[in-house]
């Protein structure tokens, strides 16, 4: 099995005024290509931190990891940026779009950064139910439509790994399910890895595997 992510013995703590507070200790897990993993746990359990680490925005204290076949310890900041640009898509809970640009322009920008052509941009938007909204600005569409546009951006860049941080966290249940449907459908058809941090157990259930950080991070 080709591994998308391989984490072993990862430890991370934050320095606060009163000393180091561990976020997680000796965390190990693997993610195969085309596999989806749900990160669950209460607030503060380190879900977002782990996603940040996996895309190279934050460093670790101890342990080793491989992302898309690259050794995390040897990657420079610029190499990490290159990974994010072309191979690792990131989706946040909200504000994934440049507010001064239309939905279409946002998607184009993301695709352009990833070195993809603009051609299928409208397709992606249409497939995500955003046909006719291409020229709208982010504040002119609903929260669900914004998140779908965010997904369109990720899809347009064609990543090998998607890191999603509560992608449906600010949506109502119905909309959330639509967005999740789109995400999982795409992930399965593209065979891309997905790590998804969420509170929503129903959403977590839809992933192939689940890693509960509250339980000590043993996958």
């Amino acid at each position: 099995m080709v591994t998308s992510v391989n984490v072993s013995g990862l430890s991370k703590s934050y320095n606060t005024g009163s000393g180091a507070v561990p976020v997680f200790l000796d965390l190990s897990f693997q993610l195969a290509a085309g596999e989806s993993l749900a990160l669950t746990g209460p607030s503060g359990s380190g879900k977002s931190t782990l996603l940040n680490i996996l895309c190279g925005v934050e460093g670790v204290d101890d342990g080793s990891m491989q992302v898309l076949g690259r050794d995390g310890a040897t990657l420079t900041a610029d190499q990490w940026a290159g990974l994010r640009r072309r191979r690792v898509g990131v989706v946040f809970q909200d504000s994934n779009l440049m507010p001064a640009m239309t939905l279409e322009e946002n998607v184009k920008l993301r695709a352009d950064l990833a070195g993809r052509s603009f051609g299928p941009v409208r397709d992606w938007l249409a497939r995500l139910g955003l046909a006719g909204l291409e020229q709208r600005y982010p504040d002119q569409v609903s929260g669900g439509q914004r998140q779908r546009a965010a997904l369109a951006m990720v899809f347009a860049m064609g990543p090998d790994l998607v890191l999603a941080d509560e992608p449906t966290g600010s949506l109502d249940r119905h909309t959330a399910r639509d967005v999740a449907d789109a995400l999982f459908h795409w992930q399965r058809t593209q065979g891309c890895g997905l790590i998804l941090a969420t509170h929503d157990l129903a959403l977590a259930e839809r992933c192939d595997r689940r890693l509960d950080l509250a339980e000590g991070g043993q996958g």
């Binding site: 290159g82 640009r85 990833a114």
Partner: peptide, 16 residues
Amino acid sequence: AWYFGLLSAWGLTHRQ
């Protein structure tokens, strides 16, 4: 700042 941050998340290097 958030949106400038997005640029980083989308793979722009610090210098870029």
